[in-house]
């Protein structure tokens, strides 16, 4: 009994020590664990010009301009986090989920003019899933325009009756 009790306390003590050590270590390296930098943080955390970094944010509504240059698609769009925005220029094929109002992560460099020249664009999906008729119903009732940003609070639609709400 006492030996078991002692082993129990040793394990508890080790867990506490290890847990607090990891918490400290994680909070210390937390800045290096971010996958991307938001436009609003660029001023404070801007990497030196010419260095690759990832920029993340939402594609602003009405900002996407697509054209073809030398047979390859050229896209210009604005990425915003609500505090600041950056114009991104990307040559290449955009992922399926790319659209206005979608969050994306772009890898590239900031040019002197303040434009972000991307070499890779990834779509960042939010955590909402719904069938097309639910999306149409939300859109028709004016409660959500996907191009303007994320879906409304889940409780307002995740069990809603589509035939009644949509039409």
């Amino acid at each position: 009994m006492t030996r078991k009790r002692r082993r129990l306390w040793i394990v508890v003590a080790c867990a506490l020590g290890l847990g607090s050590a990891s918490a400290l270590a994680l909070s210390a390296v937390s800045d290096n664990l971010v996958f991307f930098i938001a436009p609003g943080d660029l001023a404070a955390k801007a990497p030196p010009p010419g260095r690759d970094f990832r920029l993340g944010g939402m594609v602003a509504q009405g900002s996407l301009h697509q054209s073809t240059q030398d047979g390859r698609p050229l896209s210009l769009f604005t990425v915003t986090d609500g505090r600041a925005s950056v114009v991104v220029r990307y040559r290449g094929i955009l992922p399926d989920l790319f659209r206005e109002g979608q969050s994306i992560v772009a890898l590239g460099t900031l040019t002197k003019s303040g434009q972000f020249r991307a070499s890779e664009v990834l779509a960042k999906h939010d955590a909402t899933y719904m069938p097309k008729d639910v999306e149409q119903a939300l859109r028709k009732s004016g409660r959500w325009n996907p191009a303007a940003g994320p879906a409304p609070a889940a409780a307002s639609w995740d069990t809603m009756n589509v035939s009644k709400a949509g039409g």
Partner: peptide, 25 residues
Amino acid sequence: VWWNTLHQPDTITLLGAPSLYITML
């Protein structure tokens, strides 16, 4: 939650409505 990731946050959480439609839940 702690860091910004490419992976989306949890759809189903203990508190709060699941952000997927009932026919998918």
